[in-house]
């Protein structure tokens, strides 16, 4: 039997909607399991890629230092890196904060906002620092493919994985391209 395709997934500044959509491939996941094995993923609870991975699926944009580290680790381990969903592709809804200065955002959330108690801007070293803007992942690492949608439908994800598993160059038919 041929070597199984290894897949890793992660969510950065996203809502896990794209992962949910992935699970919407429903019973097709059985067919996928025949040809693929999951490495690092919220679905397996494996925290770091164990070795080289064929395919890395990234949901969400890059909003903080931790996202940068995670994304770089993914890029290092994954032969093919895929931006999955609006946030990974263009920053998505989290970029609604981009037109506002980070200082204003933090002060509103942690100091001056309505209902804030014990106002202070978090400084615990355990917490990742925020970047001044949210970025799509292609501005931080090289990206091989993008699957648009918010989320991309299960059919989009399935079409992409099928093409790849079949050894072909993935290409989305026009009717599967959606940005919302």
């Amino acid at each position: 039997m041929a070597e199984k395709l290894t897949i890793a997934t992660t969510s950065l500044a996203g809502c896990f909607g794209c992962h949910m959509s992935f699970l919407d491939i429903d019973e097709r996941i059985l067919a996928l399991a025949e040809v693929a094995r999951f490495d690092r993923s919220p679905l397996t609870d494996i925290k770091h890629c164990r070795d080289r991975v064929d395919l890395g699926l990234v949901e969400g944009g890059v909003c903080n230092a931790e996202n940068v580290h995670t994304l770089r680790e993914f890029r290092r381990h994954c032969r093919i890196l895929v931006a999955v969903g609006a946030c990974a592709i263009n920053g998505g809804l989290p970029t609604l904060r981009n037109p506002i200065a980070l200082e204003e955002c933090l002060q509103e959330a942690y100091r001056d906002g309505i209902g804030v108690e014990n106002p202070q801007i978090p400084d615990d070293v355990e917490l990742p620092l925020l970047l001044d803007k949210v970025h799509p992942i292609h501005e931080v690492v090289r990206v091989d493919y993008s699957l648009p949608g918010c989320p991309p439908s299960a059919d989009v994800i399935w079409a992409f994985l099928s093409d790849l598993a079949a050894g072909g160059e993935p290409s989305l038919p026009r009717e599967l391209i959606h940005y919302d």
Binding site: L102, L106, L129
Partner: peptide
């Protein structure tokens, strides 16, 4: 891009 957050958190 982390400079503002560093300054505000004092880290």
């Amino acid at each position: 891009a982390l400079a503002t957050a560093r300054r505000l958190s004092g880290r």
